[in-house]
Amino acid sequence: MSEDLCLANARIVLTDKVVTGSITVKNGNIADIAEGDAVPDGAVNCRGDFIIPGLVELHTDNLERHIEPRPEVDWPHLSAILAHDGELASTGITTVFDALRVGSIHSGKMRYAPYARNLANDLLNARAAGHLKISHFLHLRAEICSETLLEELAEFTAEDRVGILSLMDHTPGQRQFRDLTALQTYLSKKRGFSDAAFAEHVAHLKTMQKAYGEKHQTGAVAEARRLGAVLASHDDTTAEQVAVSGSHGVGFAEFPTTREAAAACRAHGVAVMMGAPNIIRNGSHSGNVAAAELAEADLLDIVSSDYVPSALLLSAFRLADIWQSLPRAVACVTQNPAKAAGLTDRGRLEPGLRGDILRIGLAGNTPLVRGVWCCGQRVS
């Protein structure tokens, strides 16, 4: 059980406004929010710092980075999980959907072995043992262009806390890597591919998509239903691709690569998620649409840290500058992702909800994490 907590004399970011006041957490849940600058006995004087909900992260590659810190370097799972968990807590993320690849390739120039089931076991065991600071769910990244997707998905059950299943097709020449030049540059730097090796790799993946693509997509949609997971699409590029995603019942689109696709998501009632690094860098590293452009066009709902955990909080303050609304920007990293994932007990500062809370100061326009509480217990 957590101790009672009261943070006072703070600027509290509610869903529609910012008020000066105090917030009290009891037994892990928010008990009261009161306006005014009074500092009750025993309360923490926040001296005007912001109080916002704990961040909700739907898609991060960070755990994979910890289990393989360099190509072909395997790291002990529990050590990697604890480092990942602590890192996220330090950046203000209190709920995470850890992205794990399902679907492996045993042939061609780039081979991937299965790992998701074993890593999920270790993550769930660490959670059950009370080793983790924040709330973890699973996000299964279903690689359509693979050889073993359906076999790997079959290893998961409804008891595995699989909250999201995303449909990913990384076949070269479309979606994220529609521009083959960008993909070739990436693989030449990361894997040392020659021109001939790259051509062989592209041809192999296109052959695999032709053999498995339709079967895997249909099977993955069915598996999401079996697992009770929210279905997401990935790297939609055209309105036609979004229409297909919509027909499958996709709840949100991860990183649409064009404004056309983002606008089509609006028409189909699909929430749009973009990457925080895209916002901070003022553009996509793959040459795709800028997240700021979508924000200015009212085509952005959710932000994900993607590959930089600390980017999530910073992106909210950058969006606040674009929209001139901190509550709207904060909702993109708290309320909106929680809603998209079907979580109704967090993402907002309201009595009765989880005491997942951040205290944030500012250094210029850069947020400073001064305290992180998960269910009222300080984790950073």
Rank of each mutant, 00 (worst) to 15 (best):
F50L: 12
N29Q: 11
P114I: 04
Y115Q: 06
C46R: 02
V73Q: 08
A99L: 07
R111M: 14
V18I: 15
C6H: 05
E72P: 10
R65V: 04
P53N: 11
S107N: 04
I52T: 13
I81A: 01
R65F: 05
A31D: 14
L5H: 00
N45Q: 03
P71R: 14
T60M: 06
P53W: 10
G103C: 07
V13P: 09
I51G: 05
E64N: 12
L7E: 10
P114A: 05
L55A: 03
I30G: 11
D61N: 12
A83T: 05
A34W: 14
A43F: 01
F97H: 15
T91H: 15
W75N: 02
C6L: 07
S107L: 00
N27H: 13
L7H: 09
W75A: 00
G108L: 07
T15M: 11
F50P: 07
P71T: 11
R65Q: 15
T94A: 13
A31E: 11
R117T: 07
T95R: 15
L100G: 12
E57Q: 04
R111P: 11
P40M: 07
G21W: 10
A43Q: 01
T95M: 14
M110Y: 15
I105E: 09
A80L: 00
L100E: 09
I81H: 00
N45G: 00
A83Y: 01
K17W: 02
A8H: 05
G28V: 00
I33L: 12
M110V: 13
G36F: 09
N45D: 15
H106R: 13
I23G: 13
A43T: 00
D98W: 08
L78A: 08
L5D: 01
T91P: 05
D32H: 14
D98T: 06
A43W: 01
V19K: 08
T15Y: 12
N9L: 04
R65S: 09
L88E: 03
I51F: 04
T94R: 08
H77K: 05
L58S: 06
G48E: 03
G108R: 07
V44Q: 15
V18L: 02
T94F: 10
Y112G: 06
V13W: 08
I105Y: 09
T15A: 14
D16G: 09
S90T: 03
W75Y: 14
S79T: 08
G54K: 05
R47C: 09
P40R: 02
H77V: 01
E68C: 12
D49A: 14
N27G: 12
S104E: 03
T95S: 15
L7W: 14
E72H: 15
D16T: 10
D32L: 15
G54M: 01
G103L: 08
A83H: 04
T24D: 09
T94C: 15
P76L: 07
C46G: 03
G21T: 06
D98V: 09
L14R: 11
P40S: 09
N62V: 01
V102T: 06
I30A: 07
A83D: 07
N45V: 00
T60F: 01
